[in-house]
Write a protein that binds this DNA or RNA. Structure first.
Lengths: 212, 212
DNA sequence: AATAAGTCGTGATATTTTTCACAATTCAGT
DNA sequence: ACTGAATTGTGAAAAATATCACGACTTATT
């Protein structure tokens, strides 16, 4: 289970590589070089080769990588052979965007359950996902290990506590609240206002050339 | 203009600090320590002190930081005294979520203009923002420097090209497409599927303890 | 006035991540 | 076969980031 020592920075890029390889494969492309990949995903080619090398020698010198082989390799590495079920808490605009997104296409992930407090929404189906009452969270969550949190900030901690109690493993938190959880639970924060403001800051202070 | 050598990692955390300080100030809190900040924003206290130190000695030893002073300092550093106008391209669910988000509260940012291809939406106001026809992009964009891109992936590059032509400086790209732009233009990618899949990957391979 | 507790700022160190640069290898063309 | 162009995998170096740990200072208390 414990894949030894893949750097976090690498792990975060894997889904990106995977998706692009998937596209290439669907286009019938048979081989690809780190340079081509680099142009497409905007990651330095040496970084890509280094990333791949953590999994062994996947390519051929002077040739590049076999798309199908590489794809197959990543599929198993990313555990794409079994569907990961995800719950979505908070069916506002952002939550609805997720419900309409088809994660099955490139990622073997499915949102199977959604929750909201709004009685207008409870009982409906959005993007094929049933929306339950947030008060039934504990009963309906079953053994889902991953949750997407798109609720108002003030609700975030209370709901996170409930998720923890039900045995969640990971939370993708879109609220501005930095939630507290036991340390064996992984939380990734995506803070839209912070991202926007950071971009504005970079433009004002790093504008002349574009590092990163 | 060129603030010397603030590390990027620090710059990305500034908006987070700023927002929390703003909250503290509104609560009437007068002082705060790096430890308290650390608990709230989940960043190591030494990292916070280091981050602040790039701007000089903002605190007092044995005391902590004066909330009002620190806030004022960040306000100028983050250029919060003048409103940054932003355009939003693509009024789907995700775009609509942005239009309803009040960036003026903690960030001095305002979405002033939105664009969409759907004639149902063109001409309406969403969250107080007028929605124009995407075909009028060139005419209506005026001198907005920042754009949020929430369109279908296939449209992304075409629209990015138009934005570039109109003199955009920064793009917050929510599409899975990695767009190509001249290198003086800054693009931040937020890729929802990648974030979700990366979280799932971390859970499977790093589950026992939670680094980061 | 002295003491204790709390806290910053930062030199030094550790860790993580990226990049360089090149030997080894492959492939395509002659 | 041979040659030249392309490309990997990786040791080594560089750069970026995070953390440790402590002297110096502030405040509160007695």
């Amino acid at each position: 289970m414990e894949q030894n020592k893949i750097p976090q920075a690498t792990a975060k890029r894997l889904p990106l590589y995977y998706r692009f390889l998937n596209n290439l494969n669907q286009q019938g492309k048979k081989r690809v070089s780190s340079k081509e990949l680099s142009d497409a995903v905007k990651v330095d080619s040496a970084t890509i080769r280094r990333d791949f090398s953590y999994f062994g020698a996947l390519g051929k010198k002077g040739y590049g990588y076999n798309v199908e082989y590489l794809l197959g390799f990543f599929r198993s590495t990313l555990d794409q052979h079994e569907v990961t079920e995800v719950a979505l808490i908070g069916v506002g605009n952002l939550g609805t965007a997720f419900l309409h997104y088809n994660f099955m296409k490139n990622n073997n992930i499915r949102i199977t359950t959604a929750f909201d407090a709004d009685t207008e929404k409870v009982g409906t189906d959005i993007g094929g996902v049933p929306v339950y009452d947030i008060r039934d969270l504990e009963e309906k969550l079953e053994d889902i290990k991953v949750a997407i949190l798109t609720v108002p900030a003030v609700e975030a901690q209370v709901i996170a506590d409930k998720l923890v109690e039900k045995g969640i493993s990971g939370i993708l938190n879109f609220t501005p609240a930095r939630i507290s959880v036991p340390k064996h639970i992984r939380v990734h924060h995506i803070d839209l206002a912070v991202e926007l403001q950071a971009l504005v800051y970079f433009l004002k202070h790093y504008s002349l050339d574009n590092p990163e």
